[in-house]
Amino acid sequence: MKAQYINSFYKAVLDVFRLMLDINPEREELTVVDDMIAGNEANVMIGITGDLAGSVLFGFTKDMTLEMVKIMSGMEMKKLDSFVSSALGEVVNIISGNAVTNLSKEGYTCDISPPQVIIGENRSISMATEKALTLPIKTEIGKFEINISVRENQ
């Protein structure tokens, strides 16, 4: 798997976080994992089709999710309800849409499927048959990660 896939997503995270949340994220060290597990409190999965095929899983803590929605709404959020998870899903949808635009500049034409939000720790959904890359991202309101597992369609 090539670094440019994850870079397209990282660049999209930077742009969307700055634009929507006024936050500057910072990337940490990329690691290789054997499979993808939705092991965080708030997970959002996106499917990719086209020149690249596979899935991308975003994992957030409850606190960070509530803080993100608080920044957007200007209101204190207490629980991971439908409002909060839907807002989070839409933010990931926007990030992924931007990532697809970035990928097209690299010569890959892709599409994304609507986000699937999975709330609750240890809802293990192992979906990768291949290895995945995990990129941890640090922000002033917490840390989250992007797991990506895609292959090139010949």
């Binding site: 957007m72 309800d81 409002f83 839907s86 807002a87």
Partner: peptide
């Protein structure tokens, strides 16, 4: 309705 609200808010800001 909650789901719609969350989506609407994030969509509009972006």
């Amino acid at each position: 309705v909650q789901e719609f609200g969350g989506k609407l808010m994030a969509w509009l800001i972006n």
